[in-house]
Amino acid sequence: MTTTRAIANGNMPDKEYGEPVIELTAARKVYRSGTIEFEALRGVDLEIRQGEYVAIMGPSGSGKSTLMNILGCLDTLTTGHYRLAGHDVDDLDEAELAEIRNKEIGFVFQQFNLLPSLEAWRNVELPLMYARVPGHERRARAERALERVGLGSRFVNKPGELSGGQQQRVAVARALVGEPTMILADEPTGNLDSVSTEDVLGLFDELHDLGRTIVLITHELEVAQRARRIVRVKDGLIQGDTAEGALLATVAGGAA
């Protein structure tokens, strides 16, 4: 049973991980709408190391989407500090953040977010275009990334000609192609049936085995349990982290 395996893996204490990729210190995020203030993150500390496979879990409104935006450099903190792969991202401007996103993060979204007018490989090469990689090299790398996710034969298909699972694989290939420091997946299985879900999660397992850092945001326990570490967010705070010896039973029990 998958759940059992995930729990066993999540508790494995002896797996060695590398340098910190994500260092979040006293992270607060306040949204203002007129006179109303909403504190989405209320002081979060989080460290994720090179090679980890982490699931960030929580119900809607828990602050996990805000956390995902911060981790993805799509938004900046109100107070606190965030270091990503050694870069301080707190004071970067929009163009510098774009460069960090391009180099350090491979996004996978719930809605796939493929451009419907472009062939699969054209979608995959997009991050390389913004990294100014020359055209012939982009094509070769896009081809390799598509082969890596098992879609070598779907090179020239447009997203509309692919199934949901295949589209998400193209998105994973796009996240991989720039060799980013981490893959940030936001509800990657939210729009997939159970077969495709298994498909994509299997792919993440393989990537983890190859040493990739993966951060997966989800509200589904079954999906989170495929990760090696589960960080549980509620009301803008981290409520449980299996890496800090929090009992998995608590996490599992809380979700049940």
């Binding site: 774009a98 391009n102 451009l115």
Partner: peptide, 13 residues
């Protein structure tokens, strides 16, 4: 959405 995606993938303004 396309603009958002391109920005997420690293397109500067």
């Amino acid at each position: 959405r396309e603009i958002g995606l391109r920005k997420a993938l690293g397109a500067p303004p």
